[in-house]
Deep mutational scan, measured.
Amino acid sequence: MSIQHFRVALIPFFAAFCLPVFAHPETLVKVKDAEDQLGARVGYIELDLNSGKILESFRPEERFPMMSTFKVLLCGAVLSRVDAGQEQLGRRIHYSQNDLVEYSPVTEKHLTDGMTVRELCSAAITMSDNTAANLLLTTIGGPKELTAFLHNMGDHVTRLDRWEPELNEAIPNDERDTTMPAAMATTLRKLLTGELLTLASRQQLIDWMEADKVAGPLLRSALPAGWFIADKSGAGERGSRGIIAALGPDGKPSRIVVIYTTGSQATMDERNRQIAEIGASLIKHW
């Protein structure tokens, strides 16, 4: 067993022997301040990774656009098919120029040779490549099948209805392509620590998230040296922004954090800054 596999296998073990965790309302004060600064709703939840206990939450059962955070769930569904012998990570998928959609920095470079399922998941999570996500959605049967996968996990809230990039439209009061912070946090925890996926697939999923290259201005910008984070960000229309993450000190994750916002007129930089400040408060009061 590799060191990384050992780390993920012992996530519940280490967490069980940690000192009790206590909620700190100071972080919620910052979440509410972010709402004021952005002029928009902000949803927040913080779960203990081992027990699933909610440590703090704000608007945990209000719907927010998922945006690209759905790509972690998508690759979880792909990995479940791999575990069941219905898919192979090494299978190569070929596609054409007509398949390319807006923001496809990886797939646009491989029109000639195609990409493997493993490479597509890596591109979808680490670079948020939209064509990679659409190609992977095709392998599982489309958005409705991802929703069905989530329902089978016990998540009857999260739903995907459309493809990239239309799913980022974020129309107010439109339930399409949305989740709730509580539902997303619980589902992410199941994917990373539950028995739904094999140990190898859980490790692969967290490795992809740990290698995320496009979430630097968010929670990662607030992390002290030595902290662990595996995350996936999302951005959408109407001032929408979000991030889902597993993080913790001492090089291992111990909490799940989900943050979503929508309806702001603020710039992307300002949305990023507010999420980073929430992260800084979380870490300060850990």
Results as ranks from 00 to 15, higher is better:
residue 166 E to W: 15
residue 210 E to H: 10
residue 194 G to M: 08
residue 207 D to V: 11
residue 134 N to L: 02
residue 179 T to H: 00
residue 163 W to Q: 09
residue 221 S to R: 13
residue 88 Q to P: 05
residue 267 T to L: 10
residue 1 M to D: 01
residue 85 G to W: 06
residue 243 I to M: 06
residue 148 A to G: 14
residue 82 V to H: 09
residue 260 Y to E: 00
residue 97 Q to C: 08
residue 91 R to E: 06
residue 49 L to P: 05
residue 187 T to E: 04
residue 44 Y to Q: 01
residue 122 S to K: 13
residue 253 P to C: 11
residue 191 L to D: 00
residue 165 P to V: 09
residue 252 K to W: 09
residue 119 E to S: 08
residue 74 L to A: 06
residue 267 T to P: 14
residue 194 G to Y: 08
residue 137 L to C: 06
residue 280 A to M: 15
residue 218 L to C: 05
residue 262 T to Y: 15
residue 12 P to C: 13
residue 135 L to I: 14
residue 155 D to A: 01
residue 232 K to M: 00
residue 111 L to V: 14
residue 167 L to Y: 02
residue 108 E to D: 11
residue 148 A to V: 13
residue 81 R to Y: 08
residue 74 L to H: 01
residue 16 A to E: 05
residue 274 Q to H: 12
residue 63 R to V: 08
residue 41 R to C: 06
residue 45 I to P: 00
residue 197 L to H: 05
residue 181 P to N: 01
residue 30 K to P: 03
residue 107 T to P: 01
residue 156 H to F: 10
residue 122 S to A: 12
residue 15 A to H: 08
residue 176 R to G: 06
residue 212 D to Y: 03
residue 85 G to H: 12
residue 46 E to K: 10
residue 105 P to I: 07
residue 98 N to G: 12
residue 196 L to N: 15
residue 131 T to C: 08
residue 189 R to E: 09
residue 79 L to A: 04
residue 66 M to C: 08
residue 238 R to N: 15
residue 42 V to W: 09
residue 240 S to E: 09
residue 204 Q to H: 11
residue 245 A to Y: 01
residue 248 G to Y: 01
residue 113 D to S: 11
residue 223 L to T: 13
residue 165 P to F: 05
residue 220 R to P: 02
residue 152 N to P: 04
residue 219 L to S: 04
residue 116 T to W: 02
residue 79 L to H: 01
residue 77 A to H: 10
residue 114 G to E: 04
residue 156 H to N: 14
residue 79 L to G: 02
residue 279 G to S: 10
residue 232 K to S: 00
residue 210 E to M: 10
residue 44 Y to F: 12
residue 282 L to A: 09
residue 94 H to L: 13
residue 109 K to V: 12
residue 52 G to N: 08
residue 101 V to A: 11
residue 74 L to P: 01
residue 240 S to A: 13
residue 163 W to K: 11
residue 89 L to W: 06
residue 257 V to D: 00
residue 183 A to S: 11
residue 83 D to Y: 02
residue 159 R to L: 06
residue 54 I to S: 08
residue 235 A to C: 03
residue 62 E to V: 08
residue 185 A to N: 01
residue 199 L to I: 15
residue 263 G to D: 09
residue 114 G to H: 05
residue 235 A to E: 03
residue 138 T to H: 15
residue 11 I to N: 05
residue 16 A to P: 09
residue 184 M to Y: 09
residue 78 V to G: 01
residue 13 F to G: 07
residue 283 I to A: 08
residue 186 T to I: 15
residue 202 R to S: 13
residue 238 R to C: 14
residue 40 A to T: 08
residue 193 T to Y: 15
residue 146 L to E: 02
residue 269 D to T: 12
residue 48 D to A: 08
residue 56 E to N: 11
residue 23 A to S: 08
residue 11 I to D: 02
residue 61 E to G: 15
residue 75 C to G: 09
residue 286 W to P: 02
residue 192 L to K: 01
residue 176 R to K: 14
residue 136 L to K: 00
residue 106 V to T: 07
residue 121 C to A: 08
residue 38 L to T: 09
residue 206 I to W: 13
residue 272 N to H: 04
residue 266 A to N: 11
residue 7 R to M: 05
